[in-house]
Amino acid sequence: MDIYLPIASMSINIFLLIGLGGIVGFLSGLFGVGGGFLLTPLLIFSGIPPTVAAASDSNQIVAAASSGAYAHSRMGNVDLKMGIIILLGGIVGGSIGVQIIKVLRVMGNVDFVIKLIYVIMLGTIGGFMFIESLNALKRSKAQGGEEAHPHEPKESVVRKLAAKLPLQMHFEKSRMTTSAIFPFVLGTAVGILAAIMGVGGGFIMVPSMIYILGMPTIVAIGTDLFQIVLTCINVTIQQAIRNHTVDLVLVILLFIGSTIGAQIGARVSRHLRGEQLRILLAVIVLIVMVKMLVDLLVTPDNLISLARGGGGH
């Protein structure tokens, strides 16, 4: 059964879209991460034009993240002060990223650069997670099956440097004092990457908040969801105004799938241990990375390709 996507101007199997949303939602529920970094490439692999995939994905993320942000804010896991500073950085970074995309689009290299950044980012994060989870599994076996707790992050050089910067602020929810410049710059850097890659950036932001800023994990997740909702609302409206690429029909179908998938994923996750979940996620991330790397290395069937605009948020 096909459905016509009026903005993408194409028909596609309705169950394929709900299924893709379901897979990403399942992973979301299973691992507690978003799925923007997986959903955009999966939509592109399915034939959705990259600009529509990226813009509609950001709208779908608004729906998916707002339920999480609502729940976390009720539990007191959102550091509003930190979230607003990161958000401001994200807006600046997003604007820089959109300009970079514009320049690349004019040069005709946007697809290549997006793929390359995906390969580097997914390879780095996937590889890091894989090694970390493998070590955790080994430690767990050595401890006789007890779940191994990840090491507390050590105070990084960056954090020591941030302590010497001006605009020092205390962040009560995050139980830390640091310069406002630090989360702002981090927000900007992630904003640039997120804009180029057309994703929400949660998979970069949460590890950065934990390992670089030193925030408690649960507060990092809650704060990240809060800033993602606002960032993606901004991106959705910008994309709708500038590029007319938000396809509401696509968004609704993806959201139906991801809602169902997230509930199933959350139930399955109760039967798996933390390091098993992380290693599984690492493998999925690495598979997507390998698919993109193969596209860059294998001789294409057709040396001529349509130059499509990419990126988004």
Binding site: N59, Q60, V62, A63, A64, A65, S66, S67, G68, Y70, A71, V229, I233, T236, I237, Q238, Q239, A240, I241, V246, L248, V251, I252, F255, T259
Partner: peptide
């Protein structure tokens, strides 16, 4: 259209939440 798309998404997310 953009504002409507964002509002629908927030409402759907909160409802599901």
């Amino acid at each position: 259209y953009g504002i409507l798309a964002a509002l629908i998404a927030v409402a759907a997310g909160l409802l599901v939440g």
